[in-house]
């Protein structure tokens, strides 16, 4: 079963605290998930200041600056993982280094109903 682990954090805390993870630590964790066969895909994201939001309303494209919702914690990266069940997904999520300064939202992937 696939789960998306969304990494949220205050962008200051993500890099500015003593317990903030270094890139090398994040890369090592991602690499360990690749080796254990749990990693489907994962990336860290540029700062939320680089975000652009696209909407289509009545056929018209609207492009705006910034993220969809202004919140204290921003989406900082994601891991798409393969796990046996939620307990295994939660074990993987608690090892994601930014969990120490932000939070990881674990969401099961939904199969599109195309029948």
């Amino acid at each position: 079963m696939k789960y998306l682990c969304l990494v949220y954090s205050d962008e200051q805390d993500l890099h500015g605290l003593p317990e903030s993870p270094k890139d090398s630590e994040c890369a090592a964790y991602a690499e360990s998930l690749v080796r254990s066969g749990h990693m489907v895909a994962g990336e860290a994201l540029q700062s939320v200041h680089t975000a652009t939001t696209v909407r289509v309303r009545s056929g018209e494209v609207q492009i705006t600056d910034g993220p969809f919702a202004e919140t204290k914690e921003q989406l900082a990266g994601f891991y798409m993982i393969e796990a046996r069940d939620l307990n295994e997904a939660l074990r993987i999520a608690q090892g994601i280094p930014p969990a120490r300064v932000g939070s990881i939202e674990v969401r099961p992937v939904r199969q599109l109903q195309v029948d």
Binding site: R84, L86, N87
Partner: peptide, 13 residues
Amino acid sequence: SAAIPYEVPGPSE
């Protein structure tokens, strides 16, 4: 839908 397993958690959890 979230596949909460039907198990007694292991010692660490």
